[in-house]
Design a protein around this nucleic acid. Structure first.
Lengths: 151, 151
DNA sequence: AGACCTGGTCTATATATGAGACCTTGAGAG
DNA sequence: CTCTCAAGGTCTCATATATAGACCAGGTCT
């Protein structure tokens, strides 16, 4: 059984290490009756997939922003989603909310230390996404061509 | 204006580097009329937030799996979502689908080289999530306590 | 007074997900 | 020969969640 696709590419040390790490995590997660809500990644990655979360974290990584500044930085986010996403991030301790008693009151959002610690793995993912975009787009084109050929 | 929360924690070199990198990305993305669909990260991270995608990638990172093997590994996924998520991943070139002409036919899914290259940043994120879980849970508890105090 | 900022909420719809019936092909039970 | 089952799906319908868009409260400015 040497024909497995995964054998076609010798995984380098980092891939092997990643695999081992993920295997360990998976063992732990699936041990306890497999309650997926216990999976620590899910509780966090769910938010990262929330369409705006990543973008807001990136914006706040540049510098602290006020509510309306974020809206200007991300024009097509609705107020509702901005409020909700900020609330979620604040709830998780990733961002801090400071109210200034001006008239009208202004509110400044900024990354906490915990939020800043997310920048490293997030940047790794962003870098990967950028580097992989050509390959992914090529794969999509190929996939659509193939599926159009089999009507 | 030294009271910004972000000044409270001196970002180490890696955080600063991450910030600079994200700033560069953001500049590029927001340059072109801010069509978010152009943002390369979105097209990829959307999928990673898809609730099952990450888990399936992790399962396939361990070794190639057949359709039903994945179902057994992730008991509470429905066939519908498994099919759809696998299709999306295949479409993006992250996994390969191989049909064996047995009776009944069996189908094996495995990570491609591109999919394996995702393991590194994904593991970084998983590691971060595990390390940060206590802090996040503490923040959630504190947040709920605070909001319960202001009815 | 009337237009217009701030941050934020309420309602209505789009999208994602879940539950489960159905399909095709062949093997084995009766 | 018919019945049932299994793999690997697809299809339809119901619901859960995500998102958009109108609206609100209070203040400032003209």
């Amino acid at each position: 059984m040497t024909g497995l696709p995964s054998d076609n590419h010798l995984p380098d040390n980092q891939v092997a290490a990643a695999r081992a790490r993920l295997a360990a995590c998976f063992d732990v997660w699936s041990a306890g009756d497999f309650d997926l809500s216990l999976c620590p990644v899910r509780g966090v990655l769910d938010h990262l997939g929330d369409k705006w979360t990543t973008l807001i974290v990136i914006v706040l990584a540049l510098r602290p922003h006020r509510f309306s500044e974020i809206r200007r930085a991300i024009p097509d986010i609705s107020k509702r989603m901005l409020t909700q996403t900020l609330r979620d991030l604040e709830r998780d301790g990733l961002i801090a909310r400071r109210v200034f008693p001006t008239k009208p009151p202004s509110v400044e959002y900024s990354l906490t230390a915990l939020g800043q610690s997310l920048l490293e793995p997030l940047t790794a993912l962003v870098t990967w996404a950028e580097a992989s975009r050509p390959a992914i787009e090529a794969a999509r084109t190929a996939f659509e061509t193939a599926e159009a050929a089999v009507p």
